[in-house]
Design a binder for these strands. Structure first.
Lengths: 156, 156
DNA sequence: GACATAGGGGATAAATTTATCCCCGGGCCA
DNA sequence: TGGCCCGGGGATAAATTTATCCCCTATGTC
């Protein structure tokens, strides 16, 4: 803390103050929605929140393939977009809970439909994806856990 | 044609034979669906096809913000994923028509829902997006055109 | 020849998104 | 002092996605 700090410098090009160079396309509802859901883990995050898995550490356990960092980033984007809310409990160790806003909840039918569609077409899709020479490996882990959890909740 | 061609060389790292390095996450339906719809113009393309706008040149006119190249690439991905089909008419000048497969049609409720949700929340979303310091400009053009076209069709 | 039509796609650059690493806070406990 | 807990986030590298450019097919027309 004895280093000579000057005022914070906002260098462009770093994550701090990164600025889109290509205009965001927001003409039709489709693009707006796409923008909101755009992020590898966003749909899964919303799904988790809707199932009452709301603390960062729980979410992390649920999605071992995602890095902590990326989840934080995507959660923050969802928050900035008004889809989720963050509640910080002033405790130690810290406790944080995310939850869907009303707008966020109104997205859930879409998330659910995506879930259903994907599961209904899993055989077909897995087959087709295997044909793709770009895809050499796939990973499965997340939702097994999730479903386990859900079942547990239903039973408990 | 008199150049001395050798056998085609498949260099890795170029678009030809580009190979994913990060395993595709396909555990729950959500991720599968996300994968299928993942592409800036894919939802819009499906939407267009569902409205009977099926020839590449029509689509291109409809989406002036998208480059021809990118649309071709995303159409091919949709085709590879079994979501759309391509019919080539052996004529000159060439004629091509894309259309949704049955599986593709089954996605339409989701696309429609995204459209509806985005439009219903447009005010809110535009407001929130404006707060985002990353976003300095947005572009609106595509769906105006689309709706115009649709109206034309309805009237005609 | 030059250009238009209608469609494809390679090479490569630029932009954006994910992943990796590592440090911070601040009690509590051994 | 060192480590655990539970969260946050900067820097930077790697991966992936989009954008740009430009050439090709083949026929018809000015």
């Amino acid at each position: 803390m004895s280093n000579s700090y000057t005022m914070p410098i906002f260098v462009s090009g770093t994550e701090l103050m990164y600025e889109r160079k290509i205009p965001l396309t927001i003409d039709c509802g489709l693009h707006l929605t796409r923008e909101v859901l755009n992020g590898k883990w966003k749909p899964a995050l919303l799904n988790a929140l809707s199932m009452d898995i709301k603390r960062p550490s729980e979410i992390l356990r649920l999605m071992p393939d995602a890095s902590r960092r990326v989840l934080n980033v995507q959660l923050k984007e969802l928050e900035n977009h008004g889809i989720i809310e963050k509640k910080i409990y002033p405790q130690l160790p810290p406790k944080v809970e995310y939850s869907l806003t009303e707008v966020g909840w109104s997205l859930m039918p879409i998330i659910d439909a995506m879930n259903v569609w994907g599961d209904a077409n899993r055989n077909f899709l897995e087959e087709v994806i295997k044909q793709d020479p770009k895809i050499v490996q796939t990973s499965k882990s997340v939702c097994q856990n999730l479903q386990q959890l859900v079942v547990d909740r239903k039973i408990g």
